[in-house]
């Protein structure tokens, strides 16, 4: 109907332009695709499930050490390290031995109360030595360890990495290109045409959706192929969530870039926005580690909502209906930031 001389609708052309510019920028492609895969790979290897691990125990090298060593060897499941008496505290501090037994009657346990690993090792050593000294357990429980796919650390980690990546590329992708267009006076030039300003901003968010489809496919595909991380709630639910995340962080990116005049300024702002979420929103460890007073704030953060929802879908097979709370938080952030950005935006 309308004559655009062989060009498509401005929203399509703007989005395509963004998309092409991105693909022609090798560094950007690396950060978006290669980096999360390398990260997933490295963390997957570091935290892979290894079955029951022997408990490391230090034994102070003094009279009675042989007896302790003998008792631990008989109990099984321990790796014993000899520690010189003067070295005990250092050995615990630098992780050579989480617990050190000082032989004697009764023996002494040296360990770090603040470290879970140290506590666990102390309990295991105590049980073995008590039994060797003749203690009878009150009962013998039935032990059923789990190692089911879906409940390993890597299963928990991959959705968090995906969420972090959606946040990072959303903010960077949008913020960087807008500030660049501003410093090159390209924004000013565009404003001198009848282009709709909302269409320009929307094209940045839309182009994010295109990348996102690829990003998600690469990360989830890799985690599935190499670590067997599954998507219990179905690919469709995952796709919807990823889209919601892209809109949210695209909007946030627009807001962060709405007034910045230099790349340095926008980089600083972006780190300021992202840093708290890296820490608080449960990427590498659960956000429930933080005190209760902080929880309302943490739960309102967009990355927390996204990570929780991604884990709900990937690990627990929840439906989107069950995740409507998280979805609402994401959409509220996305629409709110977009509207605010449109008002605050500095076009020249």
């Amino acid at each position: 109907m309308s004559n655009r001389g062989g060009a498509a609708h401005p929203l399509v052309e703007l989005t395509l332009a963004r998309f092409r510019e991105f693909l022609r920028e090798p560094e950007a492609v690396f950060w978006v695709f290669a980096f999360p895969v390398i990260m997933t790979c490295a963390l997957g290897i570091a935290f892979r499930s290894r079955g029951a691990e022997p408990v490391i125990v230090g034994v102070a090298e003094q009279a009675g050490a042989d007896a302790v060593r003998g008792a631990l060897a008989a109990a099984g499941g321990f790796t014993v390290r000899s520690i010189a008496p003067g070295e005990i505290e250092r050995a615990i501090r630098d992780g050579r031995a989480p617990v050190v037994v000082v032989p004697g009657t009764p023996p002494a346990y040296r360990f770090d109360e603040a470290r879970a690993e140290s506590q666990v090792a102390r309990l295991a050593v105590d049980r073995a030595l008590q039994r060797a000294a003749g203690r009878q357990d009150a009962f013998v429980p039935e032990e059923r360890p789990i190692d089911a796919i879906g409940s390993r650390y890597i299963d928990w980690l991959v959705p968090g990495l995906l969420g972090m990546n959606i946040m990072g590329t959303g903010l960077w992708g949008v913020g960087f290109s807008i500030v660049q267009a501003r410093t090159k006076k390209l924004l000013k030039r565009l404003v001198a045409t009848p282009m709709s300003r909302a269409a320009y901003l929307a094209s940045h968010v839309l182009s994010r959706l295109l990348f996102l489809a690829m990003e998600t496919l690469v990360i989830v595909g890799f985690a599935w192929a190499v670590f067997g991380v599954g998507v219990r709630g179905g690919v469709l639910a995952l796709a919807v969530l990823a889209l919601a995340g892209a809109l949210t962080f695209g909007g946030l990116g627009l807001l962060v870039a709405s007034r910045a005049r230099t790349i340095e300024a926008v980089s600083g702002l972006m780190n300021l926005v992202m840093m708290p979420m890296w820490v608080l929103s449960g990427v590498f460890f659960a956000s429930s580690n933080f005190p209760d007073v902080m929880q309302p704030f943490i739960q309102a953060l967009p990355l927390t909502a996204l990570n929780d929802a991604l884990r709900g879908v990937m690990n627990e097979g929840q439906s989107l209906v069950a995740l409507r709370g998280e979805m609402a938080i994401l959409l509220a952030w996305g629409l709110g930031t977009f509207a605010l950005a449109l008002r605050l935006f500095r076009w020249q």
């Binding site: 655009r4 001389g5 060009a7 498509a8 401005p10 052309e13 332009a17 045409t193 282009m195």
Partner: peptide, 16 residues
């Protein structure tokens, strides 16, 4: 691509 982008903002004008 650049011309196509700018051309898309106008409903009247020469072909790219």
């Amino acid at each position: 691509e650049t011309l196509r982008l700018f051309r898309s903002f106008f409903t009247d004008g020469p072909a790219v």
